[in-house]
Nucleic acid binder design. Structure first.
Lengths: 164, 164
DNA sequence: CGGAATTGCTTGCGATGACAACTATTGTAG
DNA sequence: CTACAATAGTTGTCATCGCAAGCAATTCCG
């Protein structure tokens, strides 16, 4: 709660009207999008957090992944992932398996039930993404957005690594 | 926890490569951005949630706003806003004032201390937005993004109202 | 006018997730 | 080979936030 030491005030350039609009619309959209997309997966008893876990696992060979790698991809703390998996394991969608290579490691494994549920839920998720995101834009805008966010993503990863 | 009734499986159109890239990059970027932007305001003892409250209040006449309106803008539940304000009131950055017009209503009021802190923190926040978002793109991309997210935002508001 | 529905906010409770501390395993020096 | 450091995961504790319930004030109608 105690503030860290504050950086000295810098003379920073403000956002011009177009930039400010882009930023505000982006923020508002992402907020609202997160809420809307929850609705598409909740009929399947899933949160978007759960859904993301299933997706990531389904994209891996043998549908399994080390906890720490998964936590990195999901930008979740180790404890956060442990508890999210607890729920998915209880539901029988994911199971834990100790790794043979490294006995510190736990593998999160997508079960058949988990895969089946993902296959069932995914089309509705995609419908939501189309309806509220992709189909609101022109193809040119989609393309521009893809390249723009590619650069933003790379920049953020770079920044993240510099902080190590 | 109990799944709601599931919608019938629909034949939905999948995302083509460009669309999928746009979506994935967008999701990853927003996740990472949220973490990075926290770093810019945390030296001031603020979370991004707190910061957003201060910004919204500062934009209002007399720096005050009804709780329910504020909750709507921040897409926060009534109870969520109550508790977020609790913290800000404890810190002396915001105060509560009952409304004269409607005695059910509580007004959240930005204090002088809150305004001063916002003025101090804002440049660092803007620097972060520039560094990680705006300045990663060409001006054309920023403009495209502004219009694209304007349409997405409108669509989401519309959808939200239809669900009312 | 007066009761019922609505609105605005707060509180109890449960779910989620971060941080720090702890255990267990692996890697690295000396 | 042994100590020390680094890595992987779990658990305790705390903060945040949503839902349902509750209370107070207002509005709607008959």
């Amino acid at each position: 709660m105690a503030p860290e030491r504050r950086p000295a005030t810098t003379a920073s350039r403000w956002l011009d009207p177009v930039e400010a609009t882009a930023w505000r619309n982006f923020i508002d959209s992402t907020n609202a999008l997160q809420h809307v997309l929850e609705e598409d997966v909740s009929p399947f008893g899933l949160t978007m957090g759960d859904y993301e876990v299933l997706v990531r696992l389904s994209e891996r060979p043998e549908r399994r992944q080390r906890m720490c790698d998964l936590a990195g991809e999901l930008r979740l703390s180790p404890s956060g992932l442990t508890r999210r998996l607890d729920g998915l394991v209880r539901s029988g969608l994911v199971s834990r398996e100790p790794s043979n290579d490294d006995r510190r490691v736990m593998l999160a494994v997508l079960t058949d039930a988990g895969y089946d549920l993902l296959v069932e839920a995914a089309p509705h998720h995609v419908d939501g993404v189309r309806k509220h995101f992709i189909d609101r834009m022109t193809p040119a805008e989609v393309a521009a957005l893809a390249t723009a966010f590619e650069k933003i993503r790379r920049g953020l990863i770079e920044h993240q690594e510099q902080q190590q």
